[in-house]
Write a protein that binds this DNA or RNA. Structure first.
Lengths: 206, 206
DNA sequence: CTTTTGATAGTAACCGGAAACTACCCTATG
DNA sequence: CATAGGGTAGTTTCCGGTTACTATCAAAAG
């Protein structure tokens, strides 16, 4: 741990990036609302005041973190969807890519559930709302395609199914977050997804 | 709101109850982590120091709140389940009773998601874990009964289905919490539940 | 190739405010 | 009048944010 007596003076861009990285990391360990600017500074081997040279406020840091997460997530999910051979296959790939992404970054669900998001920062809320709605639309689109190709039930309410899909992801995450140590996200997800598939698959396909 | 200038000197038990009530109420409005003992006192027309005459610490207050919630929730869900004519009917009644209960007490999801629970108070976490596992077992039991009676698919993984069920509830709550004002919990739930039913219902029953 | 200089990352000390908890006193009520 | 519930007025700690100063670096100037 004593590897940075000389670790100073980064360029502004790199420092901003490091702040985002370090903040995500700390949030995973201590929880979003318990990360102080002092903690961030300490994790980088820098004083607390230095943080404010790169961001005008703590809120701006969380906003930057959320944007970083959005960009990564969208890239990963887009790639996963493109690899699918048909809409339902794409849906499955997106699901597990999503789960894996979150499993690798435990700070994300915590950010989604933080008081900070829900109550204190309207800008952050707005950003998350956009991400959520966009994502839901994407899922609904896949389901619609599946329906048109006869892979999903003809009478499927694709909008509601997309909501269920998102709920499944978020619910699994919340549960494994509370039952930390007793449940493992990936394995729960693997058991649960087939049941969801039963709900949407065309009867002829079983 | 200026209706109690004379509202003082309650018995210790009643005061404890009022603290719990008022705390839940404030948590619904401001968010769990933003409720201060000052807020509680103010909401009761009492000074902040007085709160600590009835609870040894703030943590103890949250614990009491959670126990209060558990007792109410279990009573409501038990009643709903008892009214069901068959296991699947009971499941549906439990679902909507659950949704209605949460819709009427917005503080509950916030408590579940609060950092306070996840990081700071192991006792609270333990309590919530018990509630969650007990609830899941109850759902799994209903599903098992349904399967035995031929109402649910014979090859259903009831454990995983129970997880999906819980995930659906929690996911819906989280979504409507983030999309507050754009989505309404009850109506989303009403659209989503039928899709869940499709997943577990025996093929012959459609 | 060296020196100067201007921009800026980083430091240290501080501020205002808020929150949990406490010590001590008061007073309404039975 | 005794006592339990309540009030007053702190203390301590911590956190976000600011400010005045310093160290470093790169490029222009010589």
């Amino acid at each position: 741990m004593s590897s940075e007596p000389v670790r100073k003076r980064l360029g502004a861009n790199e420092r901003r990036e490091e702040i985002v990285r370090v903040t995500l990391d700390l949030a995973a360990r201590q929880g979003v609302d318990d990360v102080t600017t002092q903690d961030m500074a300490q994790a980088m081997g820098v004083t607390q005041g230095a943080v404010f040279r790169h961001f005008p406020s703590k809120d701006a840091i969380w906003l930057a973190v959320m944007q970083w997460v959005r960009d990564r997530l969208m890239a990963v999910l887009g790639r996963a969807a493109a690899e699918g051979r048909d809409p339902l296959d794409a849906l499955q790939r997106v699901f597990f890519a999503h789960i894996d992404f979150i499993a690798g970054k435990p700070a994300i669900p915590r950010l989604l559930m933080s008081e900070h998001l829900h109550a204190r920062s309207p800008l952050l809320r707005k950003l998350v709302t956009e991400i959520l709605l966009g994502f839901e639309a994407k899922i609904a689109g896949l389901l619609e395609d599946a329906r048109k190709q006869g892979l999903a039930r003809g009478d499927l309410d694709t909008q509601a199914a997309a909501t269920l899909y998102l709920g499944m992801v978020q619910g699994l995450v919340l549960q494994t977050s509370i039952l930390r140590g007793q449940r493992e996200l990936r394995s729960e997800a693997a058991r649960t997804f087939p049941i969801f598939l039963q709900a949407i698959r065309a009867p002829s396909d079983r």
